[in-house]
Design a protein around this nucleic acid. Sequence first.
DNA 1: GTTAGTGCAAACCATTTGCAGAACG
DNA 2: CGTTCTGCAAATGGTTTGCACTAAC
Lengths: 139, 139
Amino acid sequence: MTCSINYAPRLRAQGLRVTPQRNAILHVLHHSGGHLSPTQVYERARQEFPSLTEPTVYRTLEDLAEKKLLLAAHVGNGKIVYELAETQHHHLICHKCGNTVEVDHAPLELLYHQFESSTGYKLDSSHVTFFGLCPDCQS
Amino acid sequence: MTCSINYAPRLRAQGLRVTPQRNAILHVLHHSGGHLSPTQVYERARQEFPSLTEPTVYRTLEDLAEKKLLLAAHVGNGKIVYELAETQHHHLICHKCGNTVEVDHAPLELLYHQFESSTGYKLDSSHVTFFGLCPDCQS
DNA sequence: GTTAGTGCAAACCATTTGCAGAACG
DNA sequence: CGTTCTGCAAATGGTTTGCACTAAC
C-alpha cells in the first residue's frame, strides 16, 4: 500500500465509516484499472489486509455501489463485476477470447434520449455491455 | 401442449436430434413470450415433460443458444436468461421494481457501426440490457 | 448399430444469512 | 457510548461434472 490515495473523504461524504477493509477494496479496484469480480477483489485485497473475509467483500461492494462510489457492471456469463465510478464508459467483450475494450459513453446519449421518450423510462447512464468478435478472432 | 408448432425442422437444420425434452423447452420459451431463467424453464417445462431434469435444461439451453435457436441475454443481478431468437430487440429494466420493456434494435445500428469502425470489433446484434427507472418508480 | 442426448447423484462454488464481537465516530 | 461494520460459521441455491443408460437416426 505505497499508494497515498485517500478514500476517506468520499466515504464520509456518503455517510459511510472509514475502515481498513473498505480502503483495501477501493485501493485494489483503483489499481486494477478495470472491472473485477467479487472473488477477484477478495483475493487481491486480502493481500493488503489478510483478515478480510468474503462476506465483507460482498457487503462492501454492494454498499459502495449503492452509494455510487462503484459501478456494478453486468458482464457476460452471468457474473457481476465492479469498478471505480470514475470514467463514464462501457464495455465491448469478445465472446470468443474474452478480450475487452472500453468505449465512450457519448455516442449513447442520443440513443438514451430516444428510449426515454419512447418508453417513459429514465435511463441510468450506467454500464452497458456489448458482445462481438475482436479483430483477432474474426479469422 | 395444445400447441402445434413444430420445432423439429429447426433442430434438424442445425444437426440436432429431435427429443421431447427439447420440444418442451422450446415450447415453454415460445409461450412465455419473454426471457426465462434456466430454473424457470425447468419448472415450467417439467409440467409438460415430468421426467425432465435440471442438468438437461442447462445443457439444452446452452446447445440451443450456441446453434442460434435461442438468445442468451445477460440481465441484471448477474443471471442469464434465454429467449427464442425470433425478434431482434433489447431490454430496458427498471432497477427498482424490475419491470421490463422491450426496445427495438434499429436505433442501435448506427451506434454499432461507430463502434465497429473505432474498435475493429465485429458486433453481435445480440442482446443488450439497459437499466433505468420506470415511470412508476420515478416518484 | 452408432452416436447424441438424457437421467441420476454428487460435487462445486459463488453468494447470502444470523449473530456475536470489534471498531469507528 | 451508540451504531455501524466485520468475522465466523453455516446454509443456500444455482450450475456443473462423470458415468451409465436410453433413444434418435
